[in-house]
Structures are given as structure tokens and as C-alpha cells.
Amino acid sequence: MSGRNAGIAERMQGAFAINVSDAAASRHQANISEAIRSVDVVAPSRIPRWRMRVPALVAATVVVLPIGAALAAESATPGDVLYPVKRIVEPAVAIFNEDIIAAHRVDELARIVGDPVEFDRIPAAVSDARDAVSTLPPGHELRTEFRAIADRVGRRNAQDRPTTDVPQDEDRSPVDGQSRPAEPYVPPAPDPTEDGRRGDGDVPHTSVPDTTVPGTTDTTVVRHDVPPATSDTRPPPVDEAPRDEPSPVRDHDGSFGDTTTDGTTRPRTDR
């Protein structure tokens, strides 16, 4: 205690230094002993606090993670990391909403068709969607939607066919321009349940675009789901195809095909 504060200490102790009276001290000690006897003597847990929280964390993870993954997978498309989760969850959701699977497949197809990057996934998506909508009753709006998308795919496929500067008996690979034997092209068949020409409710087979293996120089063109040609189906005129959409077929340099004088797009053939 410094000298200048000695006065303060002396004054403060003189004013406030007290002792608990004997009566109060006896009463206090009796009350403390009573409290010691009555307190619930619970041995302190030797388990660290963080370890006591582990079960709660695990339980929360088990509950929260699957729900979060299922919700996040709702908008997944084929090829996404969460797409398998979506396929696993679907049957459970379908108990409450029978159309959900078909709705998902058609929605995925629509999104894939709109994205040129997903070009190589279109055939599988069309196949899945066709299987899914086949379970729906004739005239269902998802059938109509599927047919519209399938038509669009078919028209785009027709657009990507070689035109005047390519020999008629050959088809050129959109990848490297190498010739290969031509295959007969079959356009998508219209939905018979919608136009009344067929009433059996079957979903028509649809032509899907030729694809090549991305990132390789393999010139093999794979044709998916090409049904046999029928007499009443014809390829839609090239002029009817929408001109504002680029061809999903890309060259090696990532560009789309050349645009011809009539506005259609065809693969490059100058290599």
C-alpha cells in the first residue's frame, strides 16, 4: 500500500471492517451443514463436455443431411452429383404424387435439350422420359409436353443433317468431317393419342440426334432409338426448324456448324 493511499485504507477499514457476529456465524454454519447434507451429491461426470455432445451432433447429422440432400437434389439433372439421390427419393415421393417421376423426367429432358453442353445426355434422357410418360393416361399434359420436346429434338436432328455440299450417299461426322456410310434418317413420329391417327395410347418412338463421344476423335456416330419408318411420317421441312437456336453438334474447336444461306446450320466440312 503506497503512502498516499494509507489514509484511504485507514479510513475505509475504520468505517467498514466488521466481523460476522457469533450468533450469525453459528446460524450460517448450521445452514451450510444442512445444505451439504441435503444437496444432491452427484458425482461430476468424467466424460468431457464435447464428447457428451457427439450423440446429439450425430443424430442431427443423420436427420438433417438426408433431408438437405433430398431437397438439393430436387433440381438435379442426369450427370449431376445429386442425381442418384433424386432417383432414390423419387419412389417415396411417388407414393403421394404418382406423376412426379414422369414430371421429373420431362423436366430434365427439357433442361438438357435447352443446354448444348448436355448434348450427349439427350438420348438417355429421351429414353427415360418416354418410359416415364408411358405410364400416364392418354392425353396427359406431360405426354403433350414430352411430344413437343421430342419434336424439337427431332427437328434439330434434321437440321444437323448435311445439306447441298455433302454427297447424298455419305454422312459426315460432325466431329471431324470424315465420311461414313449414310444411314436412313427417320423423323420422330407424332403422338398418336394427340392427333387421333392412332388411339392405342402408346408413346411414339422418337428420333434423337446422333452423338459422338465428347473429347475424342472417334467418328462413330451413335444413333439412338431409331424406329422403323412408317409411311405416314415424314421429316419436317428444314425451313420449319427454329432458326434462332444453334446446333447442339459442335466441332473440335467448340463452335457450332456453319450456317448455310437458307439459315440452317450444318457441320463444317472444310477440314
Binding site: 467498514f16 471492517a17 466488521i18 466481523n19 460476522v20 456465524a25 450460517h28 454454519q29
Partner: peptide, 13 residues
């Protein structure tokens, strides 16, 4: 209690 009650009581007072 015996050792500390005086100081504690003074402080409280």
C-alpha cells in the same frame, strides 16, 4: 468460513 467470513462481511457491508 472462519478464515474468510470477516473479509467477505466487510466487503458486503
Amino acid at each position: 468460513y472462519t478464515l474468510t467470513s470477516g473479509g467477505l462481511a466487510s466487503f458486503a457491508y
